[in-house]
Design a protein around this nucleic acid. Structure first.
Lengths: 134, 134
DNA sequence: GTACTGGCTTCGTGTAACTCGAAGTCAATA
DNA sequence: TATTGACTTCGAGTTACACGAAGCCAGTAC
């Protein structure tokens, strides 16, 4: 199974521009067909899954690239440890993001309820955020 | 209680640069002391809490500003509804982010465990992401 | 008094990660 | 043959800061 730029972009809820950008900086591997069009296979899908997760951890693209480059170098103890430390750090970040996301969602739930109460006329409109409940 | 730029930035785990930027674009209210230094009070803290949450929802700064501007306009039914729709949309986004964050954290947990097994010598090092378990 | 330090100020440029649009190629259909 | 549509490259634009230079000003050190 192979995919075009558009199919691949849709699969990861991103844009063709971004996918081209990733292939241009050699972050994402892609072959070309006889018409010079980018072709993505399952290997590219797996790379992209990893890249997406690292990006969600808040890792800059340059560092993701550094990690991917390490993955493609010859294996060695130092290399393995370096990759392990990167992943361990990002795993921590991932959990921080979960906590942050939950806190944000709770705030938004609260705020939405507040608006619904105003709309139901149960409390007056209060635009002053100094009175927003944290 | 009032805060300096640095204290305020620390409180929200951001930088002085960012706080100055926000005040410069009139997103965040601040007074000045007699030395022309920015001074932040509890009102600013509450604004910043809201701004931070909306940012975490993925809302661009320009739209956050538009929302904040609405909050400071004279009250009206349309204004209220406009604000309600913005918050409702962002609340949805917030919950999407939670799901995404959890999925990312699970992937990272899995990946970290994989590395630990390699380090324990139970499975061989496998740098090829085509073999990464999704 | 003056020198120095620390923390702020403005202003202008730099950076990351896209984002967009123009202009061209190429295969397939009308 | 022409046009359509999906791709291509390339260069400029955008967002949201990040950084550094240069200046101001209050407080202490001598």
């Amino acid at each position: 199974m192979t995919y075009t730029v558009k199919e691949f972009a849709d699969m990861f809820h991103t844009t063709e521009h971004t996918i081209r950008y990733y292939t241009d900086i050699n972050l994402l591997p892609c072959k070309r067909d006889n018409g010079n069009h980018r072709v993505f296979d399952e290997t590219a899908v797996n790379w992209m899954k990893g890249i997406t997760c690292l990006k969600n951890c808040g890792m800059p693209v340059k560092e993701i690239k550094r990690y991917c480059d390490l993955c493609q170098l010859e294996e060695s103890a130092e290399n393995l440890l370096a990759r392990y430390h990167i992943i361990a750090a990002q795993q921590k970040e991932a959990h921080k993001k979960v906590a942050e996301a939950i806190a944000t969602a709770e705030y938004m739930d609260h705020k939405l309820k507040h608006y619904e109460e105003i709309l139901e006329g149960r409390i007056p409109d209060d635009t002053n955020p100094a009175n927003w409940t944290a």
